[in-house]
Design a protein around this nucleic acid. Structure first.
Lengths: 235, 235
DNA sequence: AGAGAGGAGATTGTCGACAATTTTATTTCA
DNA sequence: TGAAATAAAATTGTCGACAATCTCCTCTCT
């Protein structure tokens, strides 16, 4: 069973594992600011563990691309960069497009039903804005949708690469931008589901690629409308 | 500067780095057999280093997907599996297709010239089969071609993900199959270069995807023609 | 005053020893 | 005889101490 911290269930058995999850959460939620240098002695004493265990946790964070490390110098939390975010969207376009194509062929009935219920629930929660506000909605709903399809592709390596190497970065950026809430995105989701129902892999890929491209454009627009102070917090 | 062991130059500064490169080579060349369990005390004494340094090196190997680790149980060299190889080709089709599309727009003149010289040299060496045999030719030529285009995409994250997370696995399998030598593949390379010269990203992506799919089919055919004993060596 | 050399302090890399867990071998009982 | 329980051995996880390297401050010289 591969190492899937991002994939909804992961029982930490060792100290380094628990530490990894704690630090990961701290980074994603902004508790540890972007670009900050990690002091091994300091963090180790804060969390009450040895430097060895901490170093192993940092190594895991490096795998998720949440920190970068340089020999004899140290580790830094990844820093916010518009260009890097755009790069990530390009990769998602390619990989998730392929995932959608494969999912159209390989998804089980149960998985498809679950995906449909997801989309229906999102649609429902959107019309009840008095109970669930936009932030609540898009906190994880969008990622759940994408995760479902990746899982449905039945390509284990694709799942691992996306969840392990890319999605934590996606979360990192998403936490630092306004939530990507848009009824347009939800309509795109519905179209994708319809293509998956028909088993039309070609169309599912095209629609997914369009969706990721459109999301990238929306993110870019949002970035450009943000004030320099807002952005400055993360540089 | 990101961590790019696979990308042609990487100066090991620390003991764990040197060890990582040694072990990586040993795995790729089959010195350490596929599927074998790694004994930390044994390997540490063989290489004359402490277990701590070895563990850090193993952690790096895990990033490259050359070993898998389970808590309290240990690390194993990745094992040979036809299904997994097919999965990798699907991912390469998506990612390298995107790389070709981007390279058509972003490649510099110098990079394009270098790519053309690469293809010309390959073509030349193919006609002099008395001096360079097939194994010599395809040892790294094909990977050089693909690496060039990925680099030309100017998407740093794409480069990292392919070189760090996928290409070592590609090498792992390539070493264990007959060399992927085919004049058809070389013709496909030429067509891709022509599309890149024209700056036709759409066509470059289509041709690259076709090329990767075709390479996958060729690999599959080769696998099915191999005797069970040959395959058995790597299970 | 500014640039460069030198040294004190702090940080990262490396190591061996101990603790916790797993694996293997042995014994015991139905 | 075979399966479950138990004990012994081996392996992995964790820790603190020491060595190597980097960083920053101070001092010197032009």
């Amino acid at each position: 069973m591969p190492f899937h911290p991002a994939c909804h269930s992961y029982e930490p058995v060792t100290i380094a594992d628990r530490l990894f999850l704690d630090l990961r959460r701290a980074i994603l939620e902004g508790e540890l600011p972007a670009g900050k240098k990690i002091s091994e002695p300091e963090l180790a004493s804060v969390y009450g563990v040895s430097r060895g265990s901490l170093r192993e946790a940092i190594s895991k964070l490096e795998n998720c691309n949440l920190v970068t490390r340089r020999p004899n110098i140290g580790a830094r939390i990844v820093s916010f960069s518009t260009d890097q975010l755009m790069e990530i969207y390009q990769i998602r376009e390619a990989m998730e497009g392929m995932a959608a194509r494969l999912a159209a062929k390989n998804m089980t009935e149960a998985e498809l039903a679950h995906l449909k219920s997801l989309v229906a629930r999102h649609k429902d929660s959107m019309s009840h804005t008095e109970r669930l506000n936009k932030t609540d909605y898009s906190q994880d709903a969008d990622l759940d949708f994408h995760f479902c399809i990746i899982q449905g592709s039945k390509n284990q390596r694709l799942l691992t690469m996306l969840c392990q190497d890319l999605y934590d970065l996606v979360r990192f950026y998403r936490m630092r931008l306004s939530p990507a809430f848009s009824s347009t995105a939800m309509q795109e989701h519905e179209l994708i589901v319809q293509a998956l129902e028909r088993g039309d892999g070609e169309m599912a890929e095209l629609l997914m690629r369009y969706h990721v491209r459109a999301s990238r454009d929306r993110a870019k627009q949002r970035l450009e409308s943000m004030s320099p102070e807002e952005l400055g917090n993360y540089h």
